[in-house]
Simulated assay, not measured.
Amino acid sequence: MQGSTKIIDLLNRQLTMELSSMDQYLAHSKLYEDWGISRLYHLLEHEYDEELGHARKIIERIIFLEGKADTASRDPIQVGGDVKQMLTFDLAAENAVAESLREIIGVCEEEQDYVTRDMLMELLDDTETDHIFWLEQALGLIDLVGIQNYIQSQMKASEG
């Protein structure tokens, strides 16, 4: 089914954002793993997998619309130097993803591509209720209990 070139281009832009977020989560998860902050490591592994799932859905839709999925392009990522900075950078990336999704959903309405719109609404829901929510919650906890207490709460409990 030949889709709108405008929507295919916007989906490729969204794909770039999802893949870039995935790269940033990977970099941050590996830092958390190296620092021994295992709960954050596992949370970001989960976020990486979810971004990969978002990318797959977008790729499948682009192909269905007879477009060519651009899986090579990336936006610059921001790798933080400490836990709070990393969480802040991840939240900024997710907010940008959500804003872009809202824009594309509007274009899908204009172009009457309701299937793409519905798929993107699912991604937006996941972005807002999972990704953004837990990042805001983590940053709120840092403000509430302090960075050292937050980091300690995210470390694996010692065995024995």
Rank of each mutant, 00 (worst) to 15 (best):
M1A: 02
Q2F: 10
G3C: 02
S4N: 04
I7F: 04
I7C: 00
I8M: 03
I8R: 01
T16S: 11
M17P: 01
S20V: 07
S21V: 04
S21E: 10
D23P: 00
Y25T: 03
L26N: 08
A27C: 13
H28R: 02
H28V: 00
K30W: 14
L31I: 15
Y32V: 10
Y32L: 12
D34W: 04
D34V: 01
G36P: 09
H42N: 11
L43Q: 05
L44D: 03
L44W: 06
E45T: 04
E45L: 09
E45M: 06
H46S: 13
E47L: 11
E47R: 04
D49K: 14
E50A: 06
E50F: 03
E51G: 01
G53V: 07
H54E: 12
H54M: 12
A55S: 15
A55W: 15
A55Q: 15
A55C: 14
I58P: 10
I59F: 08
R61F: 13
I62M: 11
I62N: 06
F64Q: 14
L65E: 10
K68F: 13
K68N: 12
A69S: 15
D70M: 07
R74P: 09
R74Y: 13
Q78K: 05
V79L: 11
G80S: 06
G81R: 06
D82Q: 12
K84R: 15
K84S: 14
M86W: 08
M86D: 06
T88I: 04
D90H: 04
L91R: 04
A92R: 00
A92W: 00
A93R: 00
N95C: 01
N95G: 00
V97Y: 00
A98K: 05
A98W: 03
E103M: 12
E103K: 13
E103R: 11
E103Y: 13
I104D: 03
V107Q: 11
V107G: 04
V107S: 07
E109N: 07
E109D: 12
E110S: 08
D113W: 07
Y114P: 05
T116M: 05
D118E: 13
M119Y: 03
M119N: 10
M119G: 04
L120V: 09
M121A: 10
D125W: 03
T127K: 00
D130P: 01
H131T: 00
F133D: 05
F133T: 03
G140F: 02
G140A: 11
G146T: 08
G146W: 09
I147E: 15
Q148L: 10
Y150V: 10
Q154N: 14
M155P: 06
A157H: 15
S158V: 14
